[in-house]
């Protein structure tokens, strides 16, 4: 039983680290703001959730688990909403997504604001 819990905790941590790393590579490598935000926004929530679940499995203390659960719930609520608000603000301020028509790096200013 102990081995199973330890194994699953390690697996969750590993998966979470992998997701976080892929988000990090995404924020460096992707061509414009919206794709970068896609990479970060998606992996941030799931990666953080996986790491927190992995930590929860490591510790039998109930107070610690409740605190971790609070952080997990907050991350699940806050992270997507922050991404949503960020994308909305960028779009409203005329940051145009990269498409076939305008192939400049980092998004360009639109001609019709």
């Amino acid at each position: 039983m102990d081995i199973v819990v330890n194994m699953s905790s390690g697996l969750c941590l590993l998966l979470g680290s992998f997701l976080c790393l892929s988000g990090g590579i995404g924020i460096i490598r992707f061509p414009d703001f919206y794709t970068r935000m896609h990479a970060v926004g998606v992996t941030d929530t799931l990666g953080a959730g996986m790491i927190l679940i992995g930590l929860m499995l490591q510790n039998p203390d109930s107070l610690v688990i409740i605190k971790l659960l609070m952080i997990l719930v907050m991350t699940i609520f806050i992270s997507p909403v922050a991404s949503h608000a960020l994308a909305k603000a960028a779009f409203r301020n005329d940051l145009v997504p990269l498409s076939d028509r305008n192939e400049h790096k980092g998004g360009t200013e639109s001609s019709n604001p």
Binding site: F77, A85, K88
Partner: peptide, 13 residues
């Protein structure tokens, strides 16, 4: 007017 999701989350938080 448009920040509906933000307002709901703020009220919760």
């Amino acid at each position: 007017e448009q920040h509906l999701i933000l307002r709901i989350l703020t009220k919760i938080l």
